[in-house]
Design a binder for these strands. Structure first.
Length: 411
DNA sequence: TCTTGTTTATTCACTC
DNA sequence: GAGTGAATAAACAAGA
């Protein structure tokens, strides 16, 4: 489990050099890199330190999709058939919903603007990344090594996190890119490299399923979702390295027997479901390409499937819930591992941007090197893509949580 | 043309 | 050392 960290440590000899050192990372400049993010950018800034509790959902954002269904309802309802919420209105609505579940959609815009205002204020008042020791340094020098700090998460982890954070539990490739970039500034560079890896991971790993778009939702690329049985790939919610690679037994049998009998159960391995649910793969995985490892659910199969189609999920939010019932990722969020999604995406409201000593101790105990403080906190946000992203492009993102304390004005 | 998706191959790090 | 997970590169095909 620590291998990822060690590997990263190998790549960057000293993590603390990047994460343990206060650095300023202003987001304003980076916003320009996120063309197309639009309101998404703003929304993510709402999780900045200093935000009031209203900017955070009660509990972990990861749980939010399951616990606070009101948010998802509203979000889904906001953008029926909007695909991944590409419409700004939907994004803003979702954003406001995340901001305040009780907020009327009517207030969406104002809330968004408030959020923007908040961001603006914060951007002025403080460096984006929290830091425990504010040194009087030239802010320009601060940003330097920051973007070179590679997060200790594997691509599979990142994809999994993104998908789980998504309200619809599925994202297009481009949305995955955006999510990762938003959360981890590191991935705003060398895009060709890591995006290729992302694509490779999606295709190569059985835990990711491709769901075709509906005919009425033309667009590039399919949606990607998690295999319903891939629930516990990451031990204790730690997204550093999978405890075991997820493989679909069905596929394995196919490979091993290759023409042999297929009488065994249709479940996929890795994480046996206590109550056998119809696997998405079972229903939806015709081999799109004879050679392909990835399988997709054909429209016909989708129609027959007890599990709603993805694209239908997008327009039928109640179906999302049905689908989620099959995804059963809940146990992912039950843990509070220092590198868990909980810590990555949330809990800023719980800690109020202060160092979580407990987490700190945990991390030190795990030997994670630099005192990554506190949960990698970020408030849960809704973006135009329908993601409950906690981050924002830049700064608040992942690195914010890396630093322990609320950022004070470094100037 | 660009993006998306698949596949193969290589290399490295880690565990057993 | 073998097996495995992961990162990376690259080639290729298909679709928008």
């Amino acid at each position: 489990m620590l291998s990822a960290v060690k590997m990263e440590g190998h790549e960057h000899s000293d993590w603390s050099a990047y994460y343990g050192e206060p650095e300023c990372y202003t987001s304003v400049g980076n916003m320009t890199q996120h063309t197309g993010l639009g309101m998404n950018s703003m929304s993510t800034y709402m999780s900045m330190p200093g935000m009031t509790s209203t900017s955070n959902m009660s509990g972990s954002p990861m749980n939010m999709s399951y616990v606070n269904t009101g948010v998802n309802h509203s979000m889904a309802a906001m953008s029926p058939g909007s695909g991944a919420m590409h419409s700004m209105g939907a994004g803003m609505a979702g954003m406001s919903a995340a901001l305040n579940p009780n907020m009327s959609p009517i207030n969406t815009q104002s809330s968004s603007m408030n959020a923007l205002t908040s961001y603006s204020n914060m951007s002025v008042m403080s460096p984006m990344y929290g830091q425990s020791n504010i040194r009087s340094r030239d802010p320009k020098t601060y940003r330097r090594s920051y973007t070179h700090a590679k997060p200790p998460y594997s691509y599979i982890s990142l994809i999994t996190m993104a998908l789980q954070q998504s309200t619809t539990k599925m994202l297009t490739l481009n949305e995955l890119y955006q999510w990762i970039q938003d959360l981890f500034p590191f991935y705003r560079q060398n895009q060709q490299r890591w995006q290729n890896s992302i694509r490779h991971s999606l295709s190569f790993n059985d835990c990711f399923l491709k769901v075709p778009r509906s005919p009425d939702k033309p667009g590039k690329g399919s949606f990607w979702t998690l295999h319903p049985d891939s629930g516990n790939m990451f031990e204790n919610g730690c997204y550093l390295r999978r405890q075991k690679r997820f493989r679909c037994e069905k596929d394995l049998r196919k490979k091993t027997s290759e023409g042999g009998s297929n009488s065994s159960p249709e479940s996929c391995n890795g994480n046996e479901s206590p109550h056998p649910t119809p696997s998405v793969k079972d229903v939806k995985r015709p081999v799109s390409n004879p050679k392909s490892r990835q399988q997709v659910m054909s429209p016909a199969e989708h129609a027959l499937s007890p599990i709603p189609q993805t694209h239908h999920l997008l327009s039928q939010h109640h179906s999302v819930l049905v689908h989620e019932a099959h995804l059963k990722p809940e146990h992912h969020y039950s843990f509070n591992h220092p590198f868990s999604i909980n810590n990555l995406m949330s809990s800023e409201q719980q800690h109020h941007h202060k160092m979580d000593l407990k987490t700190y101790e945990q991390m030190m105990q795990y030997g994670y090197g630099s005192p990554m403080t506190g949960p990698l906190s970020m408030g849960s946000m809704s973006t135009k893509t329908g993601l409950e992203v906690a981050s924002t492009p830049t700064d608040t993102s992942y690195y914010q949580g890396v630093y322990s304390r609320p950022i004070m004005n470094s100037s």
